[in-house]
Simulated assay, not measured.
Amino acid sequence: MATYNQIDSVEFIILTELQPECYTVDDFRRNGKQFMTFLGSYLDAFAGLTQLFIQNLRLAEADIPNILSTCKRLQYLCMSVCDSEDSVLQLQLEHPRLVELDIYDAGFHLVDLKSLPNLKRLVFGMWVSPGEPLSFGNVPMLSSLSLNNVSAGYQKVFRLSHFLANVPNISNLHLSFASEKIWVKPECPKLLAPVLQKLRVLNLDRLPEGCDIAWTRFFLEAAPNLKMSITVWDHWCDMETDSVERGRTGLP
């Protein structure tokens, strides 16, 4: 790895022993400390990585920035069920080379994409924020965006004209609602058109039953050159059907 400049691609995947629901907070914290100790012991090796997948970690405030600064050649990062201590509600991400970012079930109220000048593809799912979970800073190359969430009752609906105001180059947009509450608000096409001017492919996945084709009209009016795919489906195998559990987890 000391000669990483001669290597095109190096992938590193950390898989923990159990599924996230089997871990306690202390387990997540221990996983995080073990990973950071491992990273600190092999800085030269991590400096040559181009792809990194980590999961089920609770990290200190500076750990994720340290990971990004250590992995200098990183082009793809996936973080699944990774968060920081409770006092850290906002995560800022900066990296000069990162092209793809995949974040699932992160315990942050806001993920600030502060400076990712080469980022082209973002997948973001299952957020806890009551409002918009992402802030788009310097991401001029971002063209593909996928958002997936089971929206709880306390979470507000998005106005895409505001949410995507700083990323007008989105050409591929995927929105999945997991058969639960729709978290996108229909808007006047004139307001929405400036942020969807380059949109060519739109996937609306697992809209809840009862949502008809009329709900999608504002997308077509704002971006008339779309190729659009729509799935309306109440997937009872994945949905929480127990009323008590739905109330406990904040589902409407």
Rank of each mutant, 00 (worst) to 15 (best):
A2M: 07
Y4K: 00
N5W: 09
Q6M: 05
S9W: 12
S9E: 15
I13P: 00
I14L: 14
T16N: 12
T16E: 12
L18W: 10
P20A: 07
E21V: 11
Y23P: 00
V25D: 15
D27E: 09
R29A: 15
N31E: 06
K33P: 03
F35S: 01
M36W: 08
T37C: 13
F38D: 08
F38V: 00
G40A: 08
Y42A: 10
L43I: 14
D44W: 08
A45R: 09
F46R: 02
G48M: 08
L49T: 05
L52C: 03
Q55C: 11
N66G: 08
L68C: 01
S69N: 13
S69R: 11
S69D: 00
S69V: 14
T70D: 05
T70F: 06
Q75K: 14
L77A: 03
C78A: 12
C78F: 06
V81Q: 03
D83V: 03
D83Y: 09
S87D: 15
V88K: 08
Q90P: 00
L91D: 02
Q92L: 07
L93F: 05
E94F: 02
R97C: 06
L98N: 03
V99D: 03
E100S: 12
E100M: 08
D102C: 10
D105V: 07
A106R: 09
H109S: 14
L113K: 04
K114L: 13
K114R: 12
K114T: 15
P117I: 07
N118K: 13
R121E: 12
V123Y: 15
G125F: 02
M126L: 11
M126F: 12
W127C: 01
S129K: 07
S129Y: 06
G131H: 03
P133K: 05
S135Y: 14
F136N: 04
V139M: 04
V139Q: 01
V139P: 00
P140E: 10
M141W: 06
L142V: 10
L142W: 03
S143W: 04
S143C: 13
S144L: 10
S144Q: 15
N148S: 14
V150R: 08
A152Y: 10
Y154N: 11
V157Q: 10
V157G: 10
S161I: 00
S161W: 04
A165F: 10
I170C: 01
A178D: 13
S179L: 01
S179R: 04
P186S: 09
C188Q: 12
L192T: 00
K198A: 09
L199Q: 00
D205G: 05
R206D: 11
R206A: 09
P208K: 04
G210H: 01
A214D: 11
A214P: 05
A214N: 12
F219G: 02
A222P: 00
P224L: 06
I230S: 04
W233H: 12
D234Q: 07
W236P: 04
C237I: 15
C237L: 11
M239G: 01
D242M: 04
D242H: 14
V244E: 13
R248Y: 10
G250L: 08
P252E: 11
